[in-house]
Amino acid sequence: MSARPTRGRPPRTTRRALEEIALDLFAEHGFDETTVERIASEAGVSERTFFRYFPSKVEVLWAQFDYEVKRLREAFAAVPADEPMMSAVRRIVVEANHYRAEDVPELRNRMQLLSSVPALAAGAGAHYDAWERAVGEFAASRLGASPDDLLPLAVGRTTLAAARAAFDAWLSRGDADLTIYLDQALAALARGFAPEDAPVG
């Protein structure tokens, strides 16, 4: 039998609904203090239903990140042949991180949790590896190389590092849209971190 919904909520069983409820509870009570039982109860569903969508409460926080990896792969598959590799990487990563103003508080909450909760940081590797791999495989296709060759690995890893730096700067300052930070970081990466007005060649 499903748990009774609290606060008069009707049962909400979509993956996104469970994600939103969990994030609200994490923000209100803390990640460690929020149990799967509490999330399921708030949603008016059973714990079994929760686990149908998420293998653990940790994976709730990575759901949108994993969806971004899927979008990156789809976008890289459609890059025009004449678009330079790093220009395409920059454009696609920035486009994948356009958020509506009403979604920004949730994004901030999610990213702050991912960076501050040890249990979440410990499990980050597989998710970051998938993101990095998406970029590296695109680079490999452009370079005529294997994704495990040096240069595709370097492109994937340095792009991820630049994007994470942009997120960290955005979280700590919040004085501009996230895409501005990402665009600046990836543009600097593409020119080898030389000053913008440095001569080419």
Rank of each mutant, 00 (worst) to 15 (best):
residue 116 S to N: 15
residue 190 A to W: 03
residue 106 E to D: 08
residue 95 E to M: 12
residue 195 P to I: 00
residue 130 A to M: 02
residue 162 A to S: 11
residue 177 D to N: 05
residue 105 P to V: 09
residue 101 A to K: 15
residue 11 P to M: 09
residue 15 R to E: 15
residue 92 I to V: 05
residue 69 V to M: 04
residue 29 H to N: 13
residue 43 A to C: 05
residue 90 R to M: 07
residue 41 S to G: 14
residue 15 R to F: 00
residue 147 P to V: 00
residue 96 A to F: 10
residue 87 S to Q: 15
residue 170 W to V: 03
residue 183 D to A: 12
residue 141 S to T: 12
residue 176 A to N: 12
residue 104 V to D: 07
residue 34 T to F: 13
residue 74 E to N: 01
residue 39 I to R: 00
residue 10 P to T: 13
residue 29 H to Q: 15
residue 178 L to E: 01
residue 152 P to W: 07
residue 121 A to L: 15
residue 74 E to K: 13
residue 65 F to V: 09
residue 5 P to Y: 01
residue 123 G to P: 01
residue 185 A to S: 14
residue 40 A to E: 09
residue 85 M to T: 12
residue 99 Y to Q: 02
residue 136 G to D: 06
residue 60 V to R: 03
residue 191 R to Y: 01
residue 43 A to K: 05
residue 153 L to F: 01
residue 109 N to P: 00
residue 142 R to Q: 02
residue 68 E to T: 14
residue 138 F to W: 11
residue 101 A to Y: 07
residue 47 E to P: 02
residue 146 S to E: 11
residue 97 N to V: 02
residue 134 A to L: 07
residue 50 F to N: 08
residue 67 Y to F: 05
residue 115 S to E: 13
residue 124 A to D: 09
residue 183 D to L: 11
residue 80 P to D: 04
residue 161 A to S: 14
residue 31 F to T: 13
residue 192 G to T: 04
residue 44 G to W: 10
residue 17 A to G: 14
residue 18 L to G: 02
residue 127 H to Y: 13
residue 31 F to I: 03
residue 116 S to C: 03
residue 50 F to D: 04
residue 158 T to S: 14
residue 17 A to E: 15
residue 62 W to P: 00
residue 92 I to E: 00
residue 57 K to V: 00
residue 124 A to L: 13
residue 28 E to T: 14
residue 149 D to C: 08
residue 47 E to Q: 15
residue 135 V to W: 08
residue 29 H to C: 05
residue 42 E to A: 09
residue 174 G to S: 11
residue 137 E to N: 04
residue 34 T to E: 12
residue 192 G to I: 05
residue 121 A to E: 12
residue 117 V to T: 09
residue 141 S to K: 02
residue 101 A to V: 08
residue 91 R to W: 01
residue 151 L to I: 06
residue 67 Y to N: 07
residue 18 L to Q: 10
residue 170 W to Q: 07
residue 190 A to N: 06
residue 39 I to C: 11
residue 124 A to Q: 07
residue 108 R to G: 06
residue 95 E to N: 10
residue 37 E to W: 06
residue 70 K to C: 03
residue 17 A to L: 06
residue 55 P to W: 07
residue 200 V to S: 11
residue 123 G to N: 14
residue 91 R to P: 02
residue 148 D to E: 15
residue 100 R to G: 13
residue 199 P to W: 02
residue 189 L to T: 10
residue 128 Y to Q: 10
residue 85 M to W: 09
residue 101 A to D: 15
residue 78 A to Q: 14
residue 104 V to M: 03
residue 79 V to D: 04
residue 1 M to F: 04
residue 82 D to F: 10
residue 57 K to C: 05
residue 112 Q to L: 11
residue 100 R to W: 06
residue 2 S to Q: 12
residue 153 L to C: 03
residue 170 W to C: 01
residue 126 A to H: 12
residue 55 P to H: 01
residue 40 A to R: 08
residue 8 G to T: 10
